[in-house]
């Protein structure tokens, strides 16, 4: 957290997030990059809870929270109203939520928002787990991760499914800009928010955010782990414009790390190291990272 910290007037400190919260870093960076002329529609989740405990609020921009699954729809209503009231030129609209709000319960509303082509940037803070309700599995929880609803046991190696490919889903809907980023590199977030907001139409930014309690990590290690996720190929950082891959964050050969370096630091993957069978699972995760490197051209 020592480097690249973004000072923010727009999402103020004094909130009640956990120490080391990656989502707080990311959200503050997004708010600051977007600037004051913005309206934010926030889904229910950690970010909403830790920034707006009545009667206090961290938000110095107009901000609305309605429900868990409707941030995209509320943002649609805001965007249409701004147009109808002749205020569309003055203010930009951001919808944001966690991975559960985005990949699971809010997916239908997001599909409608994208299909209708609203002028909205949707930001997903991907902690890979339902952080707010106590670390249950979401559609963006990675393979084999332990959560409170995907525990390990005689019949289980943790989460049995692979991470849902949300960027591809957004791109398939015709989102004009689709990008991934990470709390590990806040300047990357800043650049992408600014770029996204310079474009018109539906846009998507998915930010990998370490969750201290959800991942079972030391509060000082989140940012470092987020960077290892990138440099191992597990969390590819890329941009797509009009559905075409236009830019990726390359992994330099001397930066490349095996996935073990990422997995071994987190309690959610600790079961993979406790029994001999775990080796096959770690190998499968390594193959998935390799395949990301191939698919997105992260090293070429």
């Amino acid at each position: 957290m020592a480097h690249e910290q973004v000072e923010s007037r727009l999402m103020a400190y004094g909130h009640t997030a956990c120490a080391g919260c990656g989502e707080a870093v990311a959200a503050r960076t997004v708010a600051e990059a977007a600037g004051p002329d913005v309206i934010i529609a926030n889904a229910t989740g950690c970010l909403e809870v830790f920034t707006t405990r009545f009667p206090r609020s961290s938000w110095q921009v107009p901000w609305i929270h309605s429900l868990f699954e409707n941030a995209a729809s509320v943002a649609s209503g805001i965007e249409v109203a701004l147009k109808a009231l002749g205020r569309a030129g003055e203010v930009k609209v951001i919808a944001q939520g966690g991975d559960g709000a985005t990949a699971d319960i809010g997916m239908g509303a997001i599909s409608g928002m994208l299909e209708r082509g609203h002028d909205i940037l949707y930001v997903c803070y991907d902690t890979e787990v339902y952080s707010n309700t106590g670390y249950q599995r979401s559609g963006l929880t990675p393979l084999d991760a332990l959560t409170t609803t995907s525990p390990a046991g005689a019949m289980s190696w943790g989460n049995a499914t692979r991470k849902k490919d949300l960027p591809a889903i957004f791109a398939a809907h015709g989102a004009v800009y689709v990008a991934t980023s990470t709390a590990g590199f806040p300047t990357d977030i800043t650049r992408k928010v600014k770029k996204a907001l310079s474009l018109a139409g539906p846009r998507y930014l998915q930010i990998h955010c370490p969750c201290v309690a959800g991942w079972g990590i030391d509060s000082s290690k989140g940012i470092r782990l987020a960077r290892i996720a990138v440099n191992s190929g597990l969390y590819p950082i890329f941009e797509m414009e009009e559905g075409v891959l236009t830019r990726v964050r390359k992994i330099k050969p001397d930066e490349l790390l095996p996935v073990v370096e990422y997995l071994k630091e987190q309690k959610r993957f600790s079961h993979l190291f406790k029994s001999p069978g775990g080796r096959d699972h770690i190998e499968a995760i390594q193959l998935a990272a390799n395949s990301n490197i191939e698919r997105y051209g992260l090293m070429t």
Binding site: A75, S76, G77, A84, A109, E115
Partner: peptide
């Protein structure tokens, strides 16, 4: 706005009303 569900229809008017 053509909504994809009643749930969204209600959410859209919520957002619009909050915008004035």
């Amino acid at each position: 706005v053509l909504a994809e569900s009643e749930f969204t229809a209600a959410s859209v008017v919520l957002g619009a009303s909050a915008t004035g």
